[in-house]
């Protein structure tokens, strides 16, 4: 009985995603971010496109404005398309206490792994080896993290497609890691492992570090691009189904 009540409650929670717009917009943003990251590693540095990409990469204000515009566009679309068809829902606000706990946990989740890598760098040379192998382990870890978030969202809203998306993103992360592994492990010069971490590395030691970082970035870019495509396809399919089920705005029957 209670599980049936719970499933009705989940319908209310998942209503925001009923039309697929959120996934389509998230997908487009991910495709743009992933595409820019990937292209920045491929396009020759002196070309016109590379100038454009480096501008897009560095201009944080453009990304911020893009995000604000996307959210405003989402509200506008829902106001014009969704609410006249299947009704308006005001989502539950998060209480300030819960929001603070969430922010604290998010900051800890973001900072702890970074600190966990940076602090041992000073003391344990083997950890630097782990940094060099970032292209292989970072995309799968990120894929597992994003995939888990999607699966949790699917549980929270009882929307099966989010669970499926979670699995797709998780597999994409693992595949990107496997692709990087197939390219071979980046070279780890012994000098780089022993060098004083606060002093600048000589060019001959810096090159493999740069290669490793670039490969990791390319992996993350590819994962972001694949996740964006998955989101966009899922959103589009949801939108088409929603439009088929609700072709016209609701009208009072006379």
């Amino acid at each position: 009985m209670d599980s049936r009540i719970e499933s009705v409650m989940k319908r209310g929670r998942g209503y925001w995603f009923v039309d697929g717009f959120t996934e389509i917009l998230a997908g487009i943003l991910f495709i743009l971010l992933g595409g820019i990251t990937l292209l920045s590693g491929i396009v020759p540095p002196s070309s016109f496109l590379s100038q454009f990409i480096s501008l897009a990469e560095s201009a944080a204000i453009v990304k911020f404005l893009g995000l604000i515009l996307a959210v405003l566009g989402l509200w506008w679309l829902k106001d014009r398309f969704t609410y006249p068809r299947t009704g308006f829902v005001r989502e539950k606000g998060v209480p300030r206490s819960q929001l603070l706990v969430f922010l604290r946990n998010a900051v800890l989740i973001a900072i702890l792994p970074v600190l966990g890598l940076i602090i041992p760098l000073f003391f344990i040379p083997a950890v630097r080896g782990a940094i060099f192998s970032m292209p292989i382990w970072f995309p799968p870890v990120l894929g597992i993290f994003w995939g888990a978030l999607c699966i949790l969202l699917g549980e929270w809203t009882a929307l099966r497609r989010f669970r499926l998306l979670g699995v797709v993103i998780l597999l994409a992360g693992i595949s990107v890691g496997a692709w990087q592994l197939s390219l071979g492990m980046p070279n780890v010069p012994a000098g780089a492992l022993r060098a004083n971490i606060l002093s600048p590395l000589p060019d001959v030691l810096w090159a493999p570090v740069e290669e490793s970082l670039n490969r990791a970035l390319a992996g993350v870019g590819l994962l972001t691009l694949l996740s964006g495509i998955a989101f966009a396809v899922s959103g589009l399919a949801t939108f088409l189904r929603y439009r088929k089920e609700n072709p016209v705005p609701y009208r009072e029957e006379l």
Partner: peptide, 9 residues
């Protein structure tokens, strides 16, 4: 599960 909803929903 929501803050509020309209009649149509």
């Amino acid at each position: 599960s929501v803050e509020s909803a309209d009649f149509l929903f």
